[in-house]
Design a protein around this nucleic acid. Structure first.
Lengths: 118, 118
DNA sequence: CCGTATCCAGCAGGATACTG
DNA sequence: CAGTATCCTGCTGGATACGG
């Protein structure tokens, strides 16, 4: 287990965390990547299943985003030579570790909506 | 304090959290918003100060992003009628509550870099 | 079932110069 | 100091149709 300075301790080296933020953003920025990761946090899924759980995503975008995520080591793709073909997507360790980020985002999203409506 | 289902409990209503994710993304998506919020988490700052702590950001982008954040209730802008003019930016309550999201992102960014290098 | 190909609009964001 | 104005490029992402 690595000991890491907390946010309030890195005041002095202010650009350090800006780089880390950019690393994170480069990986999951965009309209669809986080929703995809969110779906895959529940386990392996096939292309059609992911597509079905994310409203309005087109096959073009889903395909493209899955490739990006695979290239960044977030998602693993497995092809089964059955007939017809079966393809499964699952999160790598890196991908699974995005759980905390995603949960923080969801929590904040719900709170923010509460604040701006109720 | 509101009781909220954890990520693993909302499996059944799968689209609920997709909406929350989108709420969050709509607010802080983009190359500069999170870095700006990160800087402001350390306290009130003037335009020039923010600009100085975020490498490579142009005044055009900083101005635009600050306006967006203000419109979304994340940032508060205060003008002092001194000579020359002084303007201070600070986070609202909503903005401050992004602390957890940001810290999760930073933590993940550092870990991800470790994994892909060391 | 699991995608690709093609086309296209809109916007994010950079460069540069200028203003109250 | 705190921004605006203008111009421009490339990416993001939607629509639609087709292929292995």
């Amino acid at each position: 287990m690595t000991v890491r300075p907390s946010l309030s301790d890195i005041k002095k080296c202010s650009t350090t965390y800006v780089l880390a933020i950019n690393d994170a953003l480069n990986v999951f920025q965009g309209k669809w990547k986080m929703p995809i990761i969110g779906v895959l946090l529940f386990g392996k899924k096939r292309f059609k299943e992911i597509s079905h759980e994310i409203p309005k995503i087109t096959p073009r975008m889903l395909s493209k985003e899955l490739k990006d995520l695979e290239a960044n080591g977030i998602v693993k793709r497995t092809v089964f030579n059955t007939m017809p073909v079966k393809v499964e997507y699952e999160l790598t360790e890196s991908g699974q570790s995005l759980h905390d980020v995603l949960e923080a985002m969801i929590e904040w999203g719900l709170d923010h909506r509460d604040r701006n409506i109720g």
